[in-house]
Amino acid sequence: MAKRDRSDRILTDWDRVFDALADPSRRYVLEYLHDRSEPASVWDLAVALAVRTTDLPPDEVDLQVVEQAEVGIVHVHLPKLQAADLVESAGDGVSLTEHAETLPLFTPAYRGVVRPVGDEEERREL
């Protein structure tokens, strides 16, 4: 019976990871955190997400758009990412967990999981 319990737990863990990865905003949060050496504040995440969704420079994004992104991050995205053990909050900062770093999300072969392949090509052109 112990093997079955362990298998069920592993499947539940993967279900949470897949659920977390199902949303492009959450994948972007993971990418953003992976590309940083320090934890990010929720406000930094909100600004980055607002910039990404509006295609405007940070100083041109409407404050209401950033605040709306912040609400989504706090109430939807971070809880799902935390439930999947992909991010952790410490004080004012959010960072990837060790568990997230061990998943193949950020390896070259799997980079498309968190960053669509087209994004890589667009960044090279810039």
Rank of each mutant, 00 (worst) to 15 (best):
A83R: 15
A84F: 06
H75T: 13
D35A: 15
T54W: 09
H34V: 03
V66F: 05
L78A: 03
L81S: 11
L49W: 00
A50F: 05
A46E: 01
E70V: 09
S41H: 07
H75M: 12
L45M: 14
P58W: 00
E70W: 10
P57K: 05
D59R: 09
R52Q: 03
H77R: 14
L81N: 10
A83C: 04
E38H: 10
P57Y: 03
A50S: 12
D35T: 12
V76K: 13
D44L: 03
P57C: 02
A69G: 04
L56Y: 10
E60N: 08
D59V: 06
A50V: 11
D55K: 08
V71M: 08
V76A: 14
V51K: 04
D55P: 03
L81D: 07
V76M: 12
V65M: 06
H34W: 13
L78V: 09
S37C: 07
D35S: 11
D35C: 04
D35V: 08
P79L: 00
V61C: 02
Q68E: 06
H77L: 07
A69D: 07
D59K: 14
P39I: 02
R36E: 13
V65Y: 07
L56R: 15
L63R: 12
L49Y: 00
D59A: 09
V51N: 09
W43Q: 11
W43F: 10
V76N: 12
V47S: 02
A46H: 02
E70Y: 09
R52N: 01
R36C: 05
D59T: 07
W43K: 12
E60H: 14
T54A: 02
A69S: 13
Q82I: 14
H77T: 05
D44Q: 13
P39V: 06
D35F: 03
E60I: 01
V71S: 11
P79Y: 00
K80V: 06
A84T: 06
A40L: 04
Q64F: 12
P79N: 05
Q64E: 13
E38I: 07
L56W: 05
L81P: 04
L81H: 12
S37L: 14
I73E: 05
E67Y: 12
V71Q: 10
T54E: 13
L63N: 08
L63G: 06
Q64D: 15
S41A: 04
K80P: 05
V42I: 08
E38Q: 11
T53V: 05
E60G: 08
V76F: 07
V51D: 09
A48Q: 12
D44W: 04
D62C: 03
R52C: 00
V74P: 00
Q68W: 04
V66Q: 12
E67H: 14
